[in-house]
Design a protein around this nucleic acid. Structure first.
Length: 568
RNA sequence: CGGGACGUGGCUCAGUCUGGUAGAGCACAGCGUUCGGGACGCUGGGGUCGGAGGUUCGAAUCCUCUCGUCCCGACCA
């Protein structure tokens, strides 16, 4: 490809609207352009990389026995009504009607469509197992699209769905997909971790998220430093807290203290000179089973998902100020476990080992210090309802936990029979018994994977693409374009390298060397071949983008040198 | 949806407080000099100042409404 015949609008300045580095670089390198919030055009350069990620995914899915198909993006409402998600999915589902006023939506995912297909076509256990996948545009009307391709509204996704006769079959398929995902992300040059994930409201049996480790990630992951345990913080179990303290020697009387206007743990801690881990944080939640007060230590974070699951409620959210006043008869900030009647109280185990603690008094502008469980107030029921911290042990091996940020690029999920039962996708087993098909689903954000790869592979000058997803393998830069000798030599290189199977960009623009170098670095092509002053002696320069290492090389050896750089 | 900020040539922004002829740098076109890490000089083209309404002799600037964008939060199989 000749640069002059290509379309590559690079930008020197950092776009003002781009927050994260991958977004900035994709804009600067001329890979993407924004059309509207969360909507991006993939320019030729970006598309080349995107297609490479796609190809890697396709190869590994095919190798794992999955079959590619392509489903419509527009889906009829009735399918979603059948699965119950027309009501449940919320406003992320973009709904509209056609000219006949029939309701449709843009597909954010395809469980309904694929299950509909399978229920029509599959009758017998002989037809199973099956894994279908597609690489297709999805639309989710995100509340807040951000970070370019990282969280777009319209985005390219590989989604796969598996159909098995029993749980053992699902386990095998799940494992095969899991392994394929590992190969895919390795080939994309990513530093990633498969982590245990929340199974969400679908209530499946198992789920893993594939997280690319990056500071800009939107998720927190708890990783063990000793074993291979890694889990989404949302899910990570907090196994042990120190046992409840029994009868310490000196116990002061609990007493009420004035704390005017001090609502947050931080304010109360600072005002009373009591560390946060001696204060109990009381948060009121509104649920479909009424208000619930949750107690955690002041330095801990409550985990709504865990709380909701423990309570067995469908809906849970932090209560509004109004709801708090109604339930606790005091405004938020002064709610405490004392004298809280008619409200279910759930405490984190760590709270029970606190002795002589401070909490809201249940009275405007007052807290109580020196509280003792069993003496001043009854011992509440306990459950693991908080987020894991670096001070907690690994739930698997007891090792030290660290919290890291991650970008979720893939998700594998054992669905079970939720959709096959709702939509009636059944088969007859070898005994002639009718059973629901056991399903799994498996997603990869293609654009997000590309963005994550850039997030992990860049330097001050731009992108440093791993070869498998680089838009070109080699960029050839003749520094004098008015000199026929340079042009001919560059052309020869272009053809020789192309014939050898490399994808080559020839920078034939009549520009100063500095400009060409900057652009070459920015777009991240792994190898640059420069034709400069020594060309007359048959010598060119070969430079590796990642290391910056430069070797001078006779023309005849270029192919060999370039190959060795790209293959390793 | 709550809080905050911002919309001025293609891009990054100044000008807005204190109303008075729309600016700079980059980019773009032409000419010349340059030519191994985003060169320099001269010349030139390009903007209904997001939109609508209002105040005023006069609005990018003040007021009201509206649309859009970004950030924080809430939300998120």
């Amino acid at each position: 490809m000749r640069y002059s015949r290509f379309f590559l609008p690079t930008v020197k300045e950092i776009p003002a609207d781009a927050e994260v580095i991958s977004h900035q670089l994709m804009l600067r390198a001329g890979m993407i352009r924004r059309l509207a919030s969360g909507l991006y055009t993939h320019l030729p350069l970006g598309l080349r990389s995107l297609r490479k990620v796609e190809s890697i995914i396709r190869e590994e899915m095919d190798a794992a026995g999955a079959l590619e198909l392509l489903m419509p993006m527009v889906q009829p409402a009735e399918l979603w009504q059948e699965s119950g998600r027309w009501e449940k999915y919320g406003r992320e589902l973009l709904r509209f009607t056609d000219r006949h006023d029939r309701p449709f939506c843009l597909g954010p995912t395809h469980e309904e469509v694929i299950t509909d297909l399978v229920r029509r076509e599959v009758r017998s256990y002989r037809d199973l197992p099956l894994v279908f996948y597609q690489i297709q545009t999805k639309f989710r009307d995100e509340i807040r699209p951000r970070f370019g391709l990282m969280r777009a509204r319209e985005f390219l996704m590989k989604d796969a769905y598996s159909f098995d006769v029993d749980d053992e079959g699902l386990d095998r398929t799940y494992r095969a997909m899991y392994d394929a995902y590992c190969r895919i992300f390795e080939r994309c040059g990513l530093d990633y971790r498969p982590v245990e994930a929340d199974t969400g409201t679908i209530g499946g049996h198992a789920s893993h998220e594939f997280m690319v480790l990056a500071e800009t990630g939107e998720d927190s992951i708890a990783c063990c430093t000793a074993c291979s345990y890694a889990s989404n913080v949302e899910l990570a179990q907090v196994v042990s807290s120190p046992p409840p303290l029994v009868s310490p020697e000196s116990r002061e009387e609990a007493r009420k203290v004035s704390t005017p206007g001090k609502r947050s743990i931080e304010e109360v801690s600072g005002f009373l000179g009591i560390p946060p881990d001696r204060i109990v944080k009381t948060l009121v939640f509104a649920t479909d089973k009424g208000p619930v007060a949750a107690l955690v230590r002041g330095d801990h974070e409550i985990n709504e998902i865990k709380l909701g699951r423990f309570l067995g409620v469908e809906e849970i959210r932090l209560a509004s100020d109004e709801e708090v006043r109604l339930a606790a008869k005091v405004s938020p900030g002064f709610v405490g476990p004392v004298g809280l009647s008619g409200v279910r109280i759930v405490a984190d185990p760590a709270v029970l080992s606190m002795d002589g603690f401070t909490a809201g008094a249940g009275e405007e502008d007052y807290h109580i210090v020196g509280l003792v469980w069993g003496r001043d107030l009854p011992v509440p029921e306990t459950a693991d309802i908080r987020n894991i911290t670096v001070h907690d042990p690994c739930p698997r091996c007891g090792g030290r936990i660290e919290i890291r940020r991650g970008i979720e690029v893939g998700h594998v999920f054992k669905l079970g029979t939720a959709y096959s039962e709702a939509l009636g996708a059944r088969f007859l087993d070898e005994n002639g018994t009718e059973k629901p098909i056991i399903m799994g689903c498996y997603g990869i954000g293609v654009g997000r994977t590309l963005a994550a790869a850039i997030e992990q592979n860049h330097d001050a000058n731009g992108i440093v693409f791993p070869r498998p997803i680089a838009p070109f393998d080699v960029i050839v830069c003749p520094l004098k374009t008015e000199d026929p000798a340079y042009i001919h030599a560059a052309d020869d290189l272009l053809h020789a390298l192309t014939r050898a199977g490399f994808q080559v960009l020839l920078d034939d623009r009549d520009l100063r060397p500095g400009v060409k170098f900057k652009d070459a670095d920015l777009i991240g092509v792994p190898v640059r071949v420069t034709l400069g002053k020594l060309l007359a002696d048959g010598i060119v320069e070969i430079r590796e983008r990642r290391s910056g290492e430069v070797v001078m090389c006779p023309m005849v050896e270029v192919l060999e040198r370039v190959s060795s750089l790209l293959v390793r």
